[in-house]
Every structure is written in C-alpha cells, then in structure tokens.
Amino acid sequence: MRAWGPLVAAVGENPSALRARGPAAAEIAALWWLMLGLAAAVYAVTIVLLAVASRRAGRYTLRPGHGFVVVCGVAVPAVILVVLMVLTIRTGVATLATDDEPALTVQVEGRQFWWDVRYDDGAVVTANELHLPVGEQVEVELTSDDVVHSFWVPQLHGKLDMIPGRVNRLLLQADEPGVYRGICGEFCGIQHARMHFVVVAEPREQFDAWLEGQRAEAAEPAGDLAAEGREVFLGTSCVACHAIRGETGPNAIGPDLTHLASRRTIAAGMLANNRGNLAGWILDPQSQKQGARMPPTNLEGPQLQALLAYLESLE
C-alpha cells in the first residue's frame, strides 16, 4: 500500500470544477448551477407529463394534439434556448475579457507524459509544477511537442488543448492561495492517466522569491556525498535526457532537474517528492508507470545514495 496522505497534501485534495478558486472557473460554475436549475425544471415537467400520459385513458377530458406539441416542443424550448444562448455568450466573454496586460506569460508544453514549464522566455525551466501570483492574470501559452494533450486546472478554468504545430493561449487567474491539481484532459497514450501537475498559487512576494530561486543555476553540491552524486549524474545515462542548468547543456528530452528538490511531486503528479519515491523511480520507473519514457537505471547502492543526496540538494 502506498501512503496517499503526502501526495494528496502535495497536489491538492479535490480538483472539483465546482470548487472554483479563480474568476473563470467561478463564472462557469455559476453557469452550471443556472443550467442545472433550468434542466431540472424542464425534466420535472416532462416526467410529470409522461407520468400523467401513462395513466389509463378515460380520466382526462383534455386530449393533447398539435397545439400541445408546438407549445411544449417548440415555443417553450425556444425561449429557454435563447436564454441559454445569452448566458453562454455572456459567460464566454467574461472568461476572456481582460482589461490589463497579463502579469506574466508562461509557456507550457505537453509531453508524453509530463509538462515542460518555462518562465521568462525560457530563462527558467521547470516541470510539472506551475506557480502563479494570486489575483493576477497569467497568460499560459500551450503547445505540444508530440501528441495532442489538454491543459486543465478544473478549479481555475476550463481546459484548452495543446496541439503540435499550434500555440493556444489561456488566461489563468487564481484568487486564493493554494495548491490545485492540474490534469491532462486529452487522451495522449499509455500513461495519460498519470499525467497530472501541480499549480501553486501564492502571494506576489512569495511568487517572486520562488521565481528568483528558480532563475539561479543549480547550487554547488554541499558535501562529499552530493559532489559524488553529481559525478554519478554526469557520468551515467541521466544526463542523456535531463538538464541541470550550470552543470549540463540544455536538454528537453526529460524534465529539467535544476531545482528538482523544490518541487512537490515527481513523475507528473504521481508521487510525492521524497527520498524513497525518488529512489524507486530512478531505479525502475516502468514498474510504477508502465510505458513512461524514462528507462530503468542500473546503479549500485552507494552510487544511488550519492545521486539521491545530490538531487535532494537541488533546492
């Protein structure tokens, strides 16, 4: 049995579209409740008519004919549908309207089966974790390098597809600090189910501090073990896919690990980021996430301990 507590704490407990924490999701949730009310009323009336109609005949003098069909089937629905059309346009426009320039632009690229996240036009690269300043509009540029994915943070906004060869733009805003679960909404292959991410909404100062920290190159390993771990990283297959700024060149085959230790999860929201999970993941990703692009790594015990020490130092 896995302990789920730490993961739920890391990724947020309930990604319900109806627990809106941003203006777009709130607008849509309000639209939902309105439509639910309308639909419930229409359904109730229809079922009552059906029930009355199903009783034995002879009880009623009223015999519905063409007038009944026109009123119930055309006139009443037409009025309701016009109302819905207006609501749809109003809500749609409300989620798009923007008085100000977005506070910042983030690039997110969907990958089988993780998320590449870039700030400052690529000066900051991270993965599977999006930080936002609370109360500010953030423009997220969405694309994909392989197949179609879809970017979805139910508590903040609806989903928008990430399509190879195209860039889609989503305006995201969180009104309350918190941790929200992001989900891949479009089937993208064998591990579509394990393609989640974390959105951390935090006050501006904290966000700035976080971004400043991410902007830095990787810290020099403190201590011999971590230094040895760096050699393991650079000397084995890790470096073929992963980049650590300051130590390696750019490499976007796998997630950037420059500040891995600062992240809440590994394996795209699947595992809480702790030493045990990291060790298991490095040695044998396939047993936990069959079909993930990361191959198993063959490391001796001491090598693994050193590597873990190094990775855990990448705050």
Binding site: E27, M35, Y43, L87, T95, S150, K159, G185
Partner: peptide
Amino acid sequence: LVVFVFGGLSGVMVASVPFDWQAHDT
C-alpha cells in the same frame, strides 16, 4: 423517454461553450 430526455438536457449543457471547457473529456 425517461433516459433520453435526461441525456438531451445534459447535451444542452455541454453545447454551451464555457461549460464544455470544463466538462469536455470528463
């Protein structure tokens, strides 16, 4: 009649663009 009308009503909901942004592929 009982089931299809229900599905028709949820269909009206997902026909609404903003709501479908949430409901799509769920």
